[in-house]
Design a protein around this nucleic acid. Structure first.
Lengths: 174, 174
DNA sequence: CGTCCATTTGAGCTTGCTCAACACCGGTGG
DNA sequence: CCACCGGTGTTGAGCAAGCTCAAATGGACG
């Protein structure tokens, strides 16, 4: 089985035995996730908000690839995109500072969630923290620091963000 | 183009603009690496020691898949294995402590480099550090701590390692 | 209005980093 | 032979980024 998000946001994650969590990716409408080698999945998936997802049997892949080569190509492309994302994310997790992580995250979300500079984050601080290898507190503090510096605007709701200076964030991102 | 290691060890890595490095993987004999979507590569590869590598043109993939489905399968499997490894490595980078990282690394190397509990690391401390998101000093200190605890044996040469207690390392690994 | 949950903020601590010195080893040349 | 050297690895001391623990704030909803 593998999956395609129709609407909403899905998080895929792994846990350590003591409960520490790493969210390896957020998946939005149109994203394909959960393609694997073996029979059983090596990570879990959860809905972040209200979600609609399509599930495909894996056997469909081989079959569909014959009938509809486009479909096979799309799945291969999705797999390679996951790999690319994972590789960039390893660099972030292993070598970026908290500020650089947040800057990268905000720019990525802006890119994927909005046409302009404003968007609403579907996930809560704990999800962001577990995605960036930080704690909730560090995420929160870094966001307020960005706001104080005038890089972003955090109107009331705490989930909505406006990027005031993408250029400055890109500089921070390294 | 993508590549297959015949003998020796290859490291693939990414850099931040100021030179911070993350080695996303080490590739040993038989490993396939460097499969990508776009035209240009998004990471660099270097020989860790004396290496022999086979390069395949990407066009060969589509072509060969028709003539030799086995080959296409092998490449797809390699891609999925890279993705799996990247996902586990994200958990390591984002959520494991220095000791847990080293324990995981040693067990992985033992698995891939040796039949028993003894092996020689092909890479230097700086490579290990940049693979685990640590500094050289922390790698070195963690290894000596493991040796003092009797978990491993570090005979003279500093590149050779014997695991005295895989079980204990597995417990540390979380 | 009170409760629950998410978020923010503060204070102090710890892990892992930085900077620095030292040890070790293989190669090179006087 | 051995002194020197560069590259690699180890060890020590002090520091700081980010964590932990704790409390305060602020909505959303009944």
């Amino acid at each position: 089985m593998f999956y395609e998000v129709r609407s909403g946001t899905v998080r895929t994650y792994k846990l350590l035995s003591d409960g520490r969590r790493l969210i390896d990716a957020f998946h939005f409408a149109g994203d394909i996730f959960g393609i694997e080698v073996g029979a059983e999945h090596r990570f879990s998936a959860e809905a972040v908000d209200d979600v609609s997802v399509v599930a495909y049997r894996r056997s469909r892949l081989a079959m569909a690839s014959d009938m509809d080569p486009q479909f096979g190509d799309r799945v291969m492309a999705a797999t390679l995109r996951s790999l690319e994302r994972a590789q960039s994310h390893m660099l972030l997790l292993g070598r970026k500072t908290a500020e650089e992580k947040m800057a990268t995250f905000l720019l990525d979300m802006a890119d994927r969630l909005s046409d302009d500079e404003h968007f609403d984050l579907p996930m809560q601080r704990a999800d962001i923290a577990d995605h960036l290898g930080l704690t909730i507190e560090t995420v929160s503090r870094t966001l307020t620091r960005f706001a104080r510096k005038g890089l972003i605007d955090l109107p009331a709701s705490s989930r909505s963000v406006t990027l005031c200076s993408k250029a400055a964030l890109q500089r921070l991102e390294v």
